[in-house]
Design a protein around this nucleic acid. Structure first.
Lengths: 212, 212
DNA sequence: TATCTTGCTGACTTATTGGTCATTAAAGTA
DNA sequence: TACTTTAATGACCAATAAGTCAGCAAGATA
């Protein structure tokens, strides 16, 4: 390295505002890659370009960091989706397609999609966080499907199916795609084209749902 | 405790043949509950009713134990399923129902179902094991669906859908049910009746697949 | 330029846990 | 019953990682 660099470049910068976000991003990536227990705070700090001590300026503990990452990352997105849905005008079949595709583009297909896998893996170790996630994310996300399907039934577009399990079954292939991409995708399963897969799914789904 | 117990009961027994199975069972349960990293060897030994040292009489390391648990637990079952399928006579629609229900009763609904969640969580940390699991379990399990669907198409029962993503989509709700039961099920989501859920799924599926 | 505030560092402490091995005792054998 | 074999123990070691803090230096202030 250039011995004069020290004269020009500072060894570190003060970036009080940006640090929490950078640390949370690094933590999310590593938690998704390796799981909560297997992720080392040193690795998170390193990826965020700071030392481990800095982590403790912004987060009380590894567990607090985890909770923060989950909460900040996902809840706000759900709220946006709910608003989008309520104002939609048009066929429910189109809304269902839109819901699935938009959701993939904005959440499932991004790094946020990894949170689902993460919560699934760690639910046993963080019961209260799991309960929070269940109520604030899963239930509300499922509510989006309930809304579309009931909307379709009321308009006479869809068959009057029971709401008990249908929404979950509609969502399952979408969630699986997400989990897939964040796990076995690594080992040579890169042959899924998400949008083609989702199109097949919505085609089959609407074939089941729609009136003849 | 009775101070004479020592005269009657031995403090431990020699059970060379039973130990490996008991240790593997305890390990599987804990790995599923807590994940690989978060599970302590002391806890596994305790649950199996032995000391930690005994673990090392039968397994070389924690990682070897993990690999053994995965391999022993699942591969043999897949082979049984393949045999069952090939000898089936009757409608493909019925075979599809049977495949899904039998699979749930014998694998998904048992403790073995937890292996899927486990592999999903740990695939990043055990790339070779993930590759093994991908080839020996996922691909072959998917092959069962491919077989039924092609069988139905050839018999003129099912519509001629592309094989690219349909099998995966058929399997997704089944796999999700399994993952669900081993994660958020804990936190008040006990309201799913697996067989009713699977019936809804197969009904919708066959509605999509079958000729009019 | 001199001074002060505070974001940041990294060596250190402490707790945990994967892995080892000399010792113990259960159970087979003669 | 005495002797042998070996399954099982549990104290111990070494390594790892969460969490702490005294000091350093970036950069704001005057």
């Amino acid at each position: 390295m250039c011995p004069l660099a020290i004269l020009i470049e500072p060894r570190w910068e003060r970036r009080k505002d940006a640090r929490p976000g950078e640390l949370a991003t690094a933590a999310l990536e590593l938690f998704i890659e390796k799981g909560f227990s297997a992720t080392r705070l040193d690795d998170i700090a390193k990826r965020a370009g700071v030392s481990k001590g800095t982590l403790y300026l912004y987060f009380d503990s590894k567990e607090a960091l985890f909770k923060s990452v989950i909460q900040e990352g996902i809840v706000s997105r759900i709220t946006e989706f709910e608003a989008f849905m309520r104002t939609y005008e048009g066929q429910s079949a189109d809304l269902l397609r839109d819901l699935i595709n938009t959701w993939w583009d904005q959440i499932g297909g991004t790094k946020l999609g990894g949170i689902t896998k993460l919560m699934m893996s760690e639910s046993g170790n963080f019961p209260e966080l799991a309960a929070f996630y269940h109520d604030e994310v899963i239930t509300r996300a499922m509510g989006l499907f309930v809304y579309v399907i009931e909307r379709g039934i009321q308009a006479g577009e869809f068959r009057a199916l029971p709401m008990e399990y249908v929404p979950r079954i509609c969502a399952a292939p979408v969630v699986m795609l997400m989990l897939w991409q964040h796990s076995f995708d690594v080992c040579g399963a890169k042959d899924i084209d998400p949008h083609a897969y989702l199109k097949t799914h919505t085609d089959m789904l609407l074939h089941s749902l729609m009136m003849r």
